[in-house]
Structures are given as structure tokens and as C-alpha cells.
Measured scan of single mutants.
Amino acid sequence: GSVVKEKKEKALIEVRPYVEYYNELKALVSKISSSVNDLEEAIVVLREEEKKASEPFKTDIRILLDFLES
């Protein structure tokens, strides 16, 4: 629970300088966080969101995924 939350919060802070739609990304992460149990599940849902998103938000999600998977 809290470790996953920390990882996601740290990821958002780390990617902030590189993303165009930070507030939207943060809102998406919050929405996903409330419906998943762990980081792996969150990553799966983020990948689905990435497929549906259009640029440049798609790239923002990709940047976040790269950080979460590192």
C-alpha cells in the first residue's frame, strides 16, 4: 500500500520536468491508484490508458511508465 503510493508519488515528482500534462497525469495516477492493489496492476492499467491516449499525453504516460518500471 504505502510503498506503492510512495513509488508513484516519487515517480510523479521525477517526471514532472519532462511531461507536458502534469496535472492530467497526476489525476490519472490518482484515479488508477484507487482501483488497483499494487504497482504491477497500476502499470498494466497505465499501459491500457497509453494505448487510448493521443499525443502528447501518450508520451507523458510513457515517460511515467519508464520511471515506474525502472
Rank of each mutant, 00 (worst) to 15 (best):
K26N: 11
R47G: 07
Y21D: 14
R47D: 02
F67C: 04
E50D: 02
V4Y: 02
N37M: 08
K31F: 09
V19G: 03
A27H: 08
K51T: 09
K58L: 03
L65P: 00
A27N: 09
R62V: 04
K7N: 07
V36P: 03
E6A: 11
E20Q: 13
I32L: 04
S34R: 06
A11D: 04
N23V: 14
A53C: 05
I63K: 04
L25H: 00
V44P: 07
E9W: 05
K10C: 15
R47P: 00
V44C: 11
V4C: 15
S34F: 06
K58D: 02
K58Y: 01
I43K: 07
R16A: 14
Y22E: 03
G1M: 01
K8A: 15
V29L: 09
E41N: 06
F67M: 05
P17Y: 05
F57T: 02
L25P: 00
S30P: 01
D38K: 07
N23I: 13
K8M: 15
E6P: 03
Y22S: 03
L28F: 02
I61T: 00
L64N: 00
I63R: 03
D60R: 01
S2A: 09
R62D: 02
E55F: 10
D60E: 02
V15A: 07
V15D: 06
E55K: 04
I43N: 02
V44E: 12
S30L: 10
E50A: 12
V4R: 04
Y18P: 13
L25Y: 01
Y22Q: 01
P56G: 10
V29Y: 14
P17G: 14
A11Q: 03
S70Y: 09
E41Y: 06
E24V: 04
Y18A: 14
A27D: 14
E49G: 02
L28Q: 01
I43W: 06
N37H: 11
A11Y: 04
S34L: 12
L12R: 01
P17K: 10
S34C: 06
A27P: 00
L65E: 00
I43M: 13
K5F: 05
V36I: 07
E40P: 09
V19D: 10
V44N: 11
P17S: 08
E24S: 03
P56L: 04
L28T: 02
V45E: 14
K26S: 14
V29D: 01
R62Q: 10
K8C: 15
L64I: 04
P17C: 15
K58E: 01
V19W: 08
V4Q: 09
N37I: 07
K10E: 08
S34H: 08
V36Y: 05
L28V: 03
K26D: 10
K8R: 09
D60A: 11
V3Y: 00
Y18I: 15
I63P: 00
I63E: 01
Y22D: 02
Y22H: 02
L46Y: 01
V44A: 13
V45P: 03
E49R: 02
V19I: 12
Y18F: 15
L46S: 00
K52P: 00
F67H: 07
K51Q: 10
S30C: 14
E55A: 05
K26G: 04
K10Y: 05
V44T: 10
V45K: 13
R16D: 14
D66T: 12
L64K: 00
E40V: 08
N37A: 12
L28R: 01
Y18Q: 15
D66I: 10
R47I: 11
D38I: 09
L68D: 00
R62H: 14
L46A: 01
A11L: 11
D66W: 12
N37K: 08
I61N: 00
K31P: 02
S70L: 09
K7W: 15
K58V: 04
E41G: 08
A27M: 08
V19Q: 03
L68P: 00
A11M: 07
V19P: 14
L68T: 01
P17T: 02
V45L: 14
E55Y: 11
D66P: 01
V45Y: 09
E24G: 02
E24D: 09
I13A: 14
D66C: 14
P17I: 15
A53T: 08
I13T: 09
E48I: 09
E69W: 07
I63Y: 08
I13W: 02
V15E: 04
G1H: 08
N23C: 13
E50M: 14
V4M: 11
K52M: 12
K58N: 04
K7C: 15
R62P: 00
L12K: 01
V36G: 05
I32F: 03
D66E: 12
Y21G: 05
K52G: 07
V44D: 09
E20F: 07
E40Y: 10
L12A: 01
V44M: 11
E6F: 01
R16L: 15
L65Q: 01
D38H: 09
E41D: 07
R47W: 14
K8F: 15
K52F: 08
L25A: 00
V29I: 09
R47L: 08
K31R: 11
E20T: 15
E49T: 05
E9H: 06
A53W: 07
K31T: 12
A53K: 03
E50T: 06
E48M: 08
Y18N: 15
R47V: 06
R62K: 12
S30V: 12
S33R: 03
S34Q: 14
I63N: 02
L25D: 00
D38Y: 09
E9G: 04
A27E: 14
S70V: 10
P17N: 13
L46H: 00
E24A: 05
S34T: 11
E9Q: 07
R47C: 07
Y18V: 14
L65D: 00
I32N: 03
K10L: 13
D60G: 06
D60F: 14
A53V: 06
V19N: 02
K5L: 13
F57D: 01
V45D: 06
R16N: 10
F57K: 02
E50G: 08
D60Y: 11
L12E: 01
L25C: 02
S30A: 11
V15R: 01
I63D: 01
E50S: 10
